[in-house]
Design a protein around this nucleic acid. Structure first.
Lengths: 327, 327
DNA sequence: CAACAAAGCTAAACCGGTTTAGCTTTGTTG
DNA sequence: CAACAAAGCTAAACCGGTTTAGCTTTGTTG
């Protein structure tokens, strides 16, 4: 920029006005404008966005904090977030938490220090204080997939409770009676609501049995899921269906069902909270709940940009998911 | 920072020296150091990384350009890249190209303007010129998964040709004779090598037939794959195995195999270039090639950091993949 | 106690942009 | 042709850090 100014014998400010498209308000002559633009192209000039950010206080970047981007669900979510952000000329910085609070806190600090214009995050258990800090600093924020009930901020979630109820009701109508539920023991609303949907329906229909609830510790999930599957296989009253509350639990669970020779659907019906691409390639019939991932990602950006633009109305979006069948 | 300096009646520079840990070289007294640190904590001071970046010329951020992060393969790759980068205090900006040159060019421009310290990218067909530009600008670069043969730069790929040969040889030893190959018609080495591995082995064994090659246009893949499957089903000489050169082709292909009632493995054996999480949950036996994704991601960061630190030796890494069986 | 060294800090430039008050110059009006 | 307005540009501050030459002050030495 300095180089352009020197070569044309004009000031840095003028060059900036022309190249940032503010030539009208700065009333620069057409002639000079085209000279500057031509030279900029010749010299292969590109603006230093870091300098621009420092000067304007806007980085045109947003932070996205997810549990684990290698998980198909979050992978897709980040994909749609990134595509939508790109259409508004925003870049996306991604960080994974692996469901770990320490990583979550660190991620938030990093993103704030990098002066992101806003943050979209998947809450981690116990991160309430950290998230309050984001709000105190007036950084636009959208919680996605889950939310902290004690924090007054935007969130986008799906109808976890309702759709879980519907799914369980559907199974009961299809004749299943002894339906188990396998769920992480994480105290996050989105997960507890799924389990609660199951609990409420089972109680209403007089099918409830606490033995049917298998809570899995996230950090030892593989072995705990194996134990749960063995338990359910040995159940004296014959469990006839399993409701898996999330995709990883499902995949691990089905792996062990094969191992212990539990046939789907002959011995056991399965229902998975989440769609898995590979359903198309399995012969195994699965009832699954499909979340509107694309809509979640896009709306997350829309809500965030709303706030970045100064709208401080708080929005709570509950999107509908669908119950579907593979095969 | 200015605030801290004012309150203590000292200069901004001193505060900077203390907080950036350069107090020794600046020889600031222990007493003042602890005062500054205490006040910084009290005021909840965090450094503005943007300002730091502008000043030092280092952003501690790297750009990652992949085809499609919602794809399990790239999702995992980005996951490992991000984790490795995090361990060196680098942040990751992710952009998807969707295999589109225009998006690729735009991604590179955005990342360069954002002054990333380095770029890890999955080449897109025709992007040679753009990548040369990166090199001209002396921005550290690592190509991953694929590479441009005409560009002298770092890359990390797997043994596409060798492992494809081995896989096809294995099938032949198992008794399969008429093995088809389904592959994108994209002119990228990693893909053409897979096909070439098939071609060479088939020719050596006198099993080659050009009718067995199905090249798929990326933009119309769904319908073209459907057509390929129909073709192969109607093949007069009975195709007995299909080698799918990438995971998306595989998933779509198998979907249509079900549709047209081609049973796996009774009517057709399948081999997939890539591991899919959900193999664990399908009964369908699949031969697959597992790429060392974690290693690729980690090495990519290692190579990139090497360069960022000034080592300008060019590295070409070819990692080994493994042939495995599901079920 | 003069001479010098070391300790401890500051002043000021710098990174590469943006922004705006205000200075010249040119044009218009009566 | 004086008075004023408009056009066209510049100067300089600013964003929030980093860096280093060099200025004071204090301590040490003979």
């Amino acid at each position: 920029m300095q180089d352009i100014a020197d070569r044309l014998g004009i000031s840095r400010g003028t060059v900036s006005l022309v190249l940032s498209g503010k030539a009208k308000s700065g009333r620069i002559s057409e002639e000079l404008q085209s000279k500057v633009k031509a030279l900029a192209k010749d010299l292969n000039y590109f603006p230093n966005e870091i300098a621009r950010s420092l000067s304007t206080g806007v980085t045109k970047s947003i932070g996205v904090i997810v549990t684990d981007i290698s998980n198909e669900f979050f992978g897709k979510m980040v994909f749609y977030i990134q595509e939508q952000a790109k259409s508004y000329a925003y870049s996306v910085i991604v960080v994974n938490t692996n469901e770990c609070l320490e990583d979550f806190d660190e991620a938030v600090t990093i993103l704030m220090n990098r002066q992101v214009d806003g943050i979209i995050l998947v809450p981690v258990e116990g991160g309430n204080k950290t998230v309050k800090n984001i709000i105190n600093r007036k950084i636009p924020l959208v919680q996605i997939d889950r939310f902290y009930p004690d924090i007054n901020s935007n969130y986008i979630v799906i109808d976890n409770y309702d759709v879980s109820r519907k799914a369980v009701e559907l199974l009961i109508e299809e004749g299943y009676k002894r339906i188990a539920v396998i769920c992480y023991n994480i105290g996050l609303a989105s997960l507890t609501e799924r389990r609660q949907g199951w609990i409420d329906v089972m109680k209403e229909r007089d099918l409830f049995d606490v033995e049917l609830i298998k809570n899995i510790d996230y950090d030892n999930q593989d072995s705990e899921i194996e134990k749960a599957i063995i338990d359910l296989k040995n159940d004296t009253d014959k469990v006839d269906a399993i409701f898996f509350c999330s995709r990883k639990v499902f995949l691990t669970g089905v792996k062990y069902m094969f191992k212990y020779d539990i046939k789907i659907p002959e011995n056991m019906h399965v229902i998975c909270f989440d769609k898995i691409d590979a359903f198309t390639f399995a012969n195994t019939p699965v009832t699954y709940i499909e979340q509107p991932i694309q809509q979640m990602g896009q709306k997350a950006i829309d809500l965030l940009l709303d706030q970045i633009r100064g709208n401080d109305q708080i929005n709570h979006l509950v999107l509908n998911s669908e119950i579907k069948f593979s095969v």
